[in-house]
Nucleic acid binder design. Structure first.
Length: 271
DNA sequence: GTGATAACCTGCTCGC
DNA sequence: TGCGAGCAGGTTATCA
């Protein structure tokens, strides 16, 4: 389930592999989610950047290939001498064949990923990307901003974090982790200024650690070279329901709010 | 306009 | 052993 650290890790590996390569041919799964892959034919890849959980691959015809990996999306560059067998696995949703014989392959088991080709910098047709909050490492992501955004709505704090509007790139794993570190009750509908300050710092910290550790591999996620991340060994809250809290030793619990499972400490993260 | 919920999608786990 | 139900979760669409 790629969140910001996973997407950033893929971006760093993929960028140098794609830059300057011309797409001679393209194939896609029949779903509308993936057929925009065909529009890349005949173009040459430029720089690969990232916004939140979206990968943005510049093309030389003043358009961009926008890639969202969904929950199970994996991107891999396959060179002509590659013997990994990745390109022959089931659930391949798009394939771009380069003029030099290499390939960029997009595999997505659950088909929650999606592809779009848009004019450079024009994300008006991609609702979530268009309304995305600031990057967590951007100076615009301040405690004041987070405090104002979270209190502008009566929805639960965690639900708002997952909406991508207060800050870009946070998913279920890093939301649980940040809320635990900040000692904020996930289902709260208001937040105090001191708690917003703790939460802002925690979000930045857990995402930075995730990037430094190459992402969190729980099941499907792999980097662009096929490696696993190591951040799963540093999680203190997500997926640890029934285990003792590392701060107070009480048992972490899991609850479902807004159709999302949330793990938290009922003692450290009081209402 | 806002918030809640369902749907999409497939593999895995668990209980019978 | 095999089957079915439930669950996982990011985004979008729909409804209240």
């Amino acid at each position: 389930m790629p969140e910001l650290p996973e997407v950033e890790t893929i971006r760093r590996e993929l960028g140098p592999q794609l830059a300057g390569r011309r797409v001679a041919d393209a194939w896609s799964h029949e779903s509308d989610k993936f057929t925009p892959a065909l529009d890349v034919t005949g173009t040459t890849f430029g720089e690969v950047s990232r916004r939140g959980k979206y990968l943005l691959a510049a093309l030389d015809n003043e358009t961009e290939l926008v890639i969202h990996l969904g929950m199970t999306g994996v991107l891999r560059v396959i060179e002509p001498d590659d013997e990994s067998g990745f390109a022959d696995l089931p659930h391949i949703r798009a394939r771009w064949t380069f003029a030099d014989g290499g390939q960029l392959v997009f595999r997505d088991v659950r088909r929650f990923g999606r592809l779009r080709v848009v004019p450079n910098g024009d994300y008006s047709t991609i609702t979530t990307l268009f309304a995305l909050g600031p990057e967590p490492f951007d100076p615009a992501f301040t405690a004041e901003h987070l405090h104002r955004e979270l209190n502008a709505s009566s929805r639960r704090i965690k639900t708002q974090l997952l909406s991508q509007r207060p800050v870009a790139g946070v998913g279920n794993i890093y939301a649980d982790e940040a809320l635990w570190h900040a000692q904020v009750y996930p289902a709260a509908r208001r937040i105090t200024r001191p708690a917003a300050e703790r939460l802002r710092d925690a979000i930045e910290d857990v995402l930075a650690a995730g990037v430094a550790n190459g992402g969190t591999t729980l099941r499907d996620y792999r980097t662009a070279t096929g490696a696993e991340g190591s951040n799963q060994h540093h999680l203190v809250c997500y997926g640890r329901a029934g285990l003792p809290c590392e701060r107070c030793a009480k048992t972490l619990v899991a609850r479902s709010w807004d159709a999302r499972t949330t793990t938290f400490c009922p003692v450290c993260q009081k209402r």
